[in-house]
Amino acid sequence: MRTSSLEGTQTITKSKAPMQSLLNDIAKNGVKEPINYVKSGGRNYIVDGHHRFYSAQKLGIKNVPVQRATLPFKGYKSVTDLVKEGRQPGYWQHMKAKK
């Protein structure tokens, strides 16, 4: 699925070092594990795989493997739980994949 058709519902929660490691791995190997999403109101909300999604976006990856899920899923019980709160950590805007 195109990354442009997915919507994040959480901000980055990993610290800088683990995010850098993930970014480097995806830059080298691509996104291997599917990103789980639910469809509601014509929109595709991510329910698992936010860090992979944000890394793919940062790297300019246009298509990622996905798997459609149904609610309840993990901490999401209903569509009203699919609300993005907060901001990305400050380091994220400056992070680049190491080659």
Rank of each mutant, 00 (worst) to 15 (best):
Y91P: 01
N36Q: 12
M95C: 05
L23N: 02
S5A: 11
V66E: 03
T13Q: 15
P18E: 08
A17K: 14
V66A: 01
S5C: 03
S5G: 02
S21R: 14
T11P: 00
E85W: 13
A56N: 06
Q57Y: 03
D48W: 02
I12F: 12
V47C: 05
M95W: 00
N63D: 07
K98E: 15
N63I: 14
V83P: 00
H51A: 04
T80F: 07
V31Q: 07
G42P: 13
R68L: 11
N24L: 10
T9L: 07
I12H: 01
M1T: 14
E7K: 13
S55Q: 09
A69K: 06
I46K: 00
K28C: 11
H94W: 09
H94D: 14
N63R: 10
A27N: 05
V83C: 11
K99D: 04
P65L: 00
M19A: 04
K99T: 08
L59R: 06
I35F: 07
G49H: 04
L71N: 03
E33D: 10
E7H: 15
G86T: 12
A27D: 14
G90I: 11
F53C: 07
I26C: 02
D48M: 06
S5T: 10
P89K: 15
D81R: 00
G41F: 02
A97N: 06
F53Q: 03
S4W: 07
K74F: 09
P89T: 15
T9A: 00
A56D: 02
F53E: 05
I46L: 01
A27K: 08
A69E: 07
G86A: 12
D81W: 00
Y54K: 10
V47D: 07
H51K: 01
I12K: 04
N36L: 14
A56F: 04
G75Q: 11
Y91G: 07
V31E: 05
A17P: 05
A97M: 05
T11D: 15
I26L: 02
P89Y: 15
T13K: 14
E33N: 12
Q67I: 08
P72R: 00
T9S: 00
Y54I: 04
F73P: 00
T70N: 09
Q20T: 13
R43N: 14
G49W: 00
Y91M: 12
S55L: 05
T70P: 00
I61E: 03
S21K: 14
M1C: 11
M1Y: 06
Y91D: 10
H50V: 02
K58S: 03
T9C: 05
